[in-house]
């Protein structure tokens, strides 16, 4: 485990200031200038490097989660409640196969 809990050599105000830019950095919307500043800071501050990288990774991991399908029984009940039974779409030759 690479936990490093030693205090930073420089002031923590800088780290806190960069914290505010994390979301924009992860979304790729941070200005080039601030990106360079943040990356220079990361090169000198291991904790910030880890936080930035794991923050960005967290966002990307959530984006990779496959969307769950709505079960066909739920869909059928919805159409019934809405009195649209007559319009329930029938999938051509597609029996319910979980995971597809």
């Amino acid at each position: 485990m690479s936990a490093s809990h030693q205090p930073h050599q420089h002031d923590q105000d800088a780290c806190r200031r960069y914290l505010g830019s994390l979301s924009e950095y992860a979304d790729g919307t941070l200005s080039d200038e601030l990106c360079q500043e943040l990356e220079a800071h990361m090169a000198a501050c291991e904790n910030c490097r880890i936080v930035v990288n794991t923050f960005t990774k967290t966002v990307s991991l959530y984006r990779q989660i496959p969307a769950p399908e709505m079960p066909s029984a739920v869909k059928e009940r919805l159409y019934k409640v809405l009195r649209l039974e007559a319009y329930i779409p029938t999938k051509p030759n597609a029996p319910d196969q979980p995971g597809q």
Binding site: S2, H5, L19, N47, I50, N53, K57, L61
Partner: peptide, 19 residues
């Protein structure tokens, strides 16, 4: 509440473990 407390770098774990 915004101050990070965990400094474990899980980015380097194999994708198989992460996914």
């Amino acid at each position: 509440e915004m101050i990070p407390r965990q400094f474990f770098d899980f980015c380097c774990l194999p994708e198989d473990d992460l996914l």
